[in-house]
Amino acid sequence: MKPARILTIAGSDCSGGAGLQADLKTITMLGGYGMSAITAITAQNTRGVFAVEPLSPEMVAAQIDACLDDIGVDAVKIGMLGSAAITHIVADRLEKIAAPVVFDPVMVATSGGLLADADTVAAFGRLMALAALTTPNLPELAALGGEAAVRTKTQALLIKGGHGEGAVIKNRLISPNGEHIFTSERIDTRHTHGTGCTLASAIATGLGQGMALPEAVKRAGDFVHAALLAAPGFGAGHGPLGHQAVRL
């Protein structure tokens, strides 16, 4: 059986912990075939984001077209977009396909670096409308107008609880089929760089492999938890996960 074809549309993290690098590691470890359309090049590491250079919208579109026209796609993950113009051209392309889309509305890196300006965030509505699932963390949810506002704009919503308090992390999946709660023990670690990217790309891989949404979310959460436990300890700040060590 051929692997599910998963396209990540995201920024590049030169240090390998987040962005499309984390996505491709995740997709591969879960048995998918990873492709990427780079939206922006970043100079970043575990300590921060030092420079961001978005690609042209035309180049982003050309990458998407090259993947879709030849390889095809079974699911799409969207991460950092880089500009409002890129956001709109990505929406233009994805409106033409039937594959499920997982949209991670990235605004700020784990280290605190700004990854989306106000115009880009304002354009997110088009992608939420296309998405089978939108996956904001608690600060992102607030910036998008809160649960009620986002719920009306997307097919399903996964509210990530990692920014909450307490010994247990609670992720809430809200869909037309009801609400599912996924819990995991909070791991006391500074090595959390790329957790959101990893979760979203893992969900997209599951959907591309034919999993039901709750099943895909559950496996993705298990993968992130295992990758946190396997973190290699690199860097002086928010270190990367141990994608390569996970065996589910």
Results as ranks from 00 to 15, higher is better:
residue 210 G to F: 10
residue 108 V to A: 01
residue 161 G to N: 11
residue 153 K to H: 03
residue 244 Q to V: 07
residue 242 G to P: 10
residue 75 A to C: 05
residue 61 A to G: 13
residue 243 H to L: 10
residue 46 T to N: 03
residue 155 Q to E: 14
residue 227 A to P: 06
residue 138 L to F: 12
residue 1 M to E: 13
residue 37 A to R: 05
residue 160 K to M: 09
residue 230 A to V: 09
residue 65 D to H: 14
residue 146 G to P: 07
residue 225 H to G: 00
residue 208 G to F: 05
residue 29 M to N: 09
residue 60 V to M: 06
residue 20 L to F: 12
residue 51 A to E: 13
residue 11 G to H: 03
residue 221 G to V: 10
residue 78 I to A: 01
residue 162 G to S: 13
residue 7 L to R: 07
residue 164 G to K: 07
residue 53 E to T: 14
residue 3 P to S: 13
residue 163 H to I: 12
residue 6 I to K: 03
residue 26 T to Y: 02
residue 106 V to C: 04
residue 75 A to L: 04
residue 82 G to N: 06
residue 203 I to W: 01
residue 175 S to L: 10
residue 182 F to H: 06
residue 33 Y to E: 10
residue 44 Q to N: 09
residue 149 A to I: 05
residue 29 M to G: 00
residue 138 L to N: 08
residue 19 G to K: 02
residue 18 A to S: 13
residue 229 L to V: 12
residue 95 E to H: 11
residue 141 L to K: 05
residue 65 D to T: 13
residue 49 V to Q: 12
residue 30 L to N: 05
residue 148 A to V: 14
residue 56 S to R: 12
residue 104 D to K: 00
residue 153 K to E: 13
residue 197 C to R: 03
residue 224 V to A: 09
residue 148 A to K: 15
residue 191 H to K: 06
residue 121 V to D: 00
residue 51 A to Q: 13
residue 78 I to T: 03
residue 149 A to Q: 14
residue 137 N to A: 11
residue 58 E to A: 15
residue 173 L to V: 10
residue 26 T to W: 04
residue 79 G to Q: 01
residue 88 H to G: 00
residue 175 S to M: 09
residue 4 A to F: 08
residue 69 D to Y: 00
residue 35 M to F: 12
residue 113 G to D: 05
residue 85 A to Q: 14
residue 127 L to M: 06
residue 144 L to V: 11
residue 36 S to W: 00
residue 18 A to I: 04
residue 130 L to Y: 07
residue 22 A to M: 09
residue 236 A to W: 00
residue 189 T to H: 06
residue 63 Q to C: 02
residue 53 E to R: 14
residue 218 K to D: 15
residue 240 P to M: 07
residue 220 A to H: 07
